[in-house]
């Protein structure tokens, strides 16, 4: 399945990836090749096959509702690229 430059631009937008013109060209070619290769899976009959999300099946892994106070909140904030009033600052949001 060939993917177009427009597909690549759309996906880059979904992934919030800024790409250069060359990268868009390159990825259009490379992703097409990879997806072509992956297209071989379509030949396989998987009609009655359940998907495997976890190789080792498990269920109901739960923890008790107990408060555990984190001692390192300041270390978390220390990594903030921009901080103000003990909050993470981001530039203005325009849609």
């Amino acid at each position: 399945m060939a993917i177009t430059k427009k597909d690549v631009e759309h996906v880059a937008k979904l992934a919030r990836l800024g790409l250069s013109e060359e990268e868009i060209e390159l990825f259009t070619r490379q992703l097409s090749a990879i997806l072509d290769f992956a297209g071989s899976l379509q030949k396989l009959d998987t009609k009655n096959i359940l998907p495997t999300s976890h190789a080792i099946p498990m269920k109901n892994v739960l923890r008790e509702d107990k408060v555990v106070t984190c001692q390192n909140t300041e270390d978390i904030l220390a990594n903030a690229p921009a901080e103000e009033d003990h909050m993470f600052r981001v530039p203005r949001i325009i849609e």
Binding site: I3, D7, V8, V11, A12, L14, A15, L17, L19, E23, F27, Q30, L31, I34, L35, A38, L41, Q42, L44, T46, I49, L50, P51, T52, S53, A55
Partner: peptide, 30 residues
């Protein structure tokens, strides 16, 4: 990393999920 983010985003995106991601999970079972 960019290439794989692109590939993965594409495989999960609307209209392609079943053909790529879900299909891969089924082949994983095989």
């Amino acid at each position: 990393v960019k290439r794989r983010i692109m590939l993965g985003t594409y495989a999960l995106s609307a209209g392609y999920y079943d053909a790529y991601y879900l299909k891969a999970l089924k082949v994983r079972t095989l």
